[in-house]
Computed example of a mutant assay.
Amino acid sequence: MSGTYKFGLYENADGTNTDGSITPLQKISITYDAGDTTPKSSKFINLELSKIYYVFELDDKDQPIKDSSTVATVNGMEYLTSYTATKSGSTTTGVNSASNGDRVTVTNQSRVNKLPSTGNCGVLIYRLAGAILILFAGVLMLMKYKETKTRN
């Protein structure tokens, strides 16, 4: 989907920093235009090499999206966001944790509301009634045919 997607870097796994603030240490953004199909990437810079950081996508209110099972609004659309980390020899744990050389991939899955189920048993009644009427019409035609045949 076209739009600008924002990401924040935090020091704690709960989307906070060691000083208790909820403002990201750094923010980056990636912009997709209509027709873009290739994945894009961006980097956080000037970080401590031995420190573990946590990457979160930011919603429309610039709040970190922490729970991948809840719906978040990004660019006015509802998404389920998931994180995966590619480790490059580090010992970090967590799907959105990274240290020097690691890569965190953020995937947004568009949330589509389930359409209502239509035509359950209400349609079945009309089908059965129609089949009975056709059968009844066939019996009447057969009786008329036999009646005209016996007259001749």
Results as ranks from 00 to 15, higher is better:
Asp14His: 08
Ser2Ala: 15
Ser82Cys: 01
Phe44Leu: 09
Asp102Ala: 07
Thr107Pro: 00
Ala72Leu: 06
Ser50Tyr: 10
Ala34Asn: 13
Thr86Gly: 07
Ala98Phe: 04
Tyr126Ser: 12
Lys43Val: 04
Lys149Thr: 06
Asn75Asp: 09
Ser42Val: 02
Met1Ala: 13
Lys66Leu: 15
Asp60Asn: 15
Thr105Asp: 13
Met141Ala: 15
Thr92Phe: 11
Gly15Cys: 05
Thr18Leu: 15
Gly119Pro: 02
Asn96Asp: 12
Pro64Asp: 10
Val55Cys: 13
Lys40Leu: 10
Asp33Cys: 03
Asp19Pro: 05
Thr73Pro: 01
Met77Tyr: 09
Lys40Ile: 03
Ser97Gln: 08
Gly20Thr: 14
Thr18Asp: 14
Gly122Ile: 05
Glu147Gln: 11
Val104Asp: 04
Gly35Val: 04
Thr107Trp: 05
Lys149Val: 09
Thr23Gly: 03
Ser110Asp: 10
Cys121Arg: 11
Leu133Cys: 08
Leu58Lys: 06
Thr37Asn: 09
Gly94Gln: 06
Thr73Asp: 08
Thr86Lys: 11
Asp19Glu: 10
Thr16Leu: 04
Asn12Met: 06
Thr107Tyr: 07
Asn96Pro: 03
Ser69Glu: 11
Tyr83Leu: 00
Glu78Trp: 11
Ser88Ala: 14
Tyr126Ala: 13
Asn17Ala: 02
Gly101Gln: 09
Thr148Asn: 11
Ile65Thr: 09
Asp19Met: 12
Arg103Ser: 13
Arg127Val: 14
Thr92Gln: 14
Tyr10Arg: 02
Phe56Glu: 00
Ile52Ala: 07
Phe44Val: 06
Phe136Ile: 06
Thr81Asp: 02
Gly101Met: 04
Ile65Ser: 12
Ala13Asn: 13
Leu124Glu: 11
Tyr10Thr: 05
Tyr32Ala: 06
Asp33Pro: 00
Leu47Asp: 00
Gly76Glu: 01
Lys51Asn: 10
Thr37Arg: 08
Met77Val: 07
Lys51His: 11
Phe7His: 01
Thr4Asn: 02
Ile52Trp: 02
Phe44Ile: 04
Ile52Met: 05
Lys43Asp: 15
Leu128Met: 12
Met141Asn: 12
Leu128Cys: 12
Glu57Cys: 03
Leu135Asp: 08
Asp59Gly: 03
Leu49Phe: 12
Glu78Val: 03
Asn152Thr: 10
Pro116Tyr: 01
Leu135Val: 14
Leu133Ile: 13
Ser68Cys: 04
Ala13Ser: 14
Lys51Ile: 01
Thr107Val: 14
Ser117Leu: 12
Ala129Asp: 02
Thr86Ser: 12
Lys87Phe: 09
Ser69Ala: 08
Thr105Cys: 05
Val123Ala: 11
Asn17Met: 04
